[in-house]
Design a protein around this nucleic acid. Structure first.
Lengths: 243, 243
DNA sequence: CAGTGGTCTAGACCACGCG
DNA sequence: GCGTGGTCTAGACCACTGA
């Protein structure tokens, strides 16, 4: 393990990456005691505070844990990479080893309803993109998705945007990263129309998911209502204790 | 706003608490520009690094956001306090303004099945507590819950534990905080037995939730399988982008 | 240009765990 | 008593923003 002090990449970041790699490789085993912060500092010829910045971030991300007076240890992170954390449908399916796809069912510009403008915190009336897509996994319908995006958060959209990463476009357009989303999940039974689009029996279990996604300043930029088929989809996520 | 340098409470923590209060009160409005880190440091007569520790934590928790070269701002956290973050059924219901309750349906010590010992990462064979409860909200059945807890993570349990906070007991018994949980959610249709216990029609929508909860060192200490009635329960959560 | 956050230094004292 | 992480200091240079 070594660092490059001349590199433009911050030192604490170099340390984080190397430790993460060693943990995933198994070079650093669960419950292993790491060298102390002072040892790392001396070994790399850097300040202890810089070492702490690296280790603290890894503690926050769940790779390490600390015990006062004892030391810093490696967590058993049996649970596979929490690479979740606000993913798009595309990313979600890829992480499940499936080929994501999409079929545009409807696109138009609409005036926000009162409900939508309240959820999105945009003016009323406001113009929204309305995008309805059938989402595919390995070419089989997995979900129906209706997205509403304020025009002033995305600008003009065309079919090319619906294929590529919408989230990257949004981040670039607003010059601000996406920070978090609120989701509501509810079980239901497929309506005639949903059953038709999803290729399942009417009345079969479906999972309704409503999502509102926010930029770093707390502004909402999309609201999505979707229906996932229950026979093929399980929603998986991780939660942290307190804050 | 002021701090007490003599207090045993860390300075960065005092600053965090006061800023959070001001944000919740509305004294600090959304998008407001905070004083710079150097101003705070001078005002309080402390080091800039200490101010940074306070502000960085608040950024991680979503109260503030920073922009290079511009300053630190208050987030619009319209979405009510993400006081979720790994809650027990009891905490969950209280936050929804409902009176939580519980009816013990079954309790025994069992030998771990292969599936459970693999999920829990405990030896095989191992002794587990098996606890089945009907969970009530305002005295109406809301969910059926089957918990499996390794004996060596909880010691002996009796009915008093089933009433009070199990999580506090676990944290004390293991001398280590709970850190996170993995959950899997799936829609379904109520079986005859589930319908009976929940007081709904067979075939009505239910939400199946499987949870595995971990201590800070990454050890699993409980696995819970539950079935929530779909007509009264919506699962709400927040997700952060990347890591 | 001056001001901001991002990174980093080389120290310091404390409370805690353990032998 | 000694080593650990937790907190804190008083500086420093950088890249970035905006006037």
């Amino acid at each position: 393990m070594q660092i490059d002090k001349q590199s433009p990449i911050p030192i604490y970041f170099q340390i984080m990456e190397q430790l993460k790699t060693q943990i995933k490789n198994g070079e650093l085993k669960a419950d292993a005691l790491l060298p102390s912060e002072r040892e790392y500092a001396e070994q790399f010829g850097i300040s202890r505070m810089t070492v702490r910045q690296a280790l603290s971030n890894l503690v926050n991300e769940g790779f390490l844990y600390r015990q006062k007076g004892r030391g810093t240890f490696v967590s058993k992170l049996k649970m596979e990479q929490p690479l979740q954390g606000l993913t798009s449908f595309t990313e979600d399916m890829r992480s499940r080893g499936m080929k994501p796809g999409s079929r545009l069912a409807e696109y138009q510009l609409i005036q926000a309803t009162e409900e939508l403008s309240s959820i999105l915190g945009c003016g009323y009336p406001a113009t929204l993109h309305k995008i309805i897509r059938v989402r595919l996994a390995n070419d089989i319908p997995m979900a129906i998705e209706a997205s509403y995006i304020p025009f002033d958060k995305a600008g003009k959209l065309d079919t090319s945007h619906f294929q590529s990463s919408m989230y990257e476009h949004i981040e670039a357009y607003n010059q601000m990263p996406i920070s978090r989303a609120k989701q509501e999940l509810e079980p239901g039974a497929a309506s005639e129309e949903e059953a038709e689009l999803l290729g399942i029996q009417p009345g079969a279990p479906v999972l309704y998911i409503k999502r509102t996604t926010y930029l770093q300043d707390g502004t909402a930029f999309e609201h999505v209502k979707s229906a996932y088929r229950g026979d093929r989809y399980t929603f998986v996520h991780y939660m942290d204790r307190v804050k």
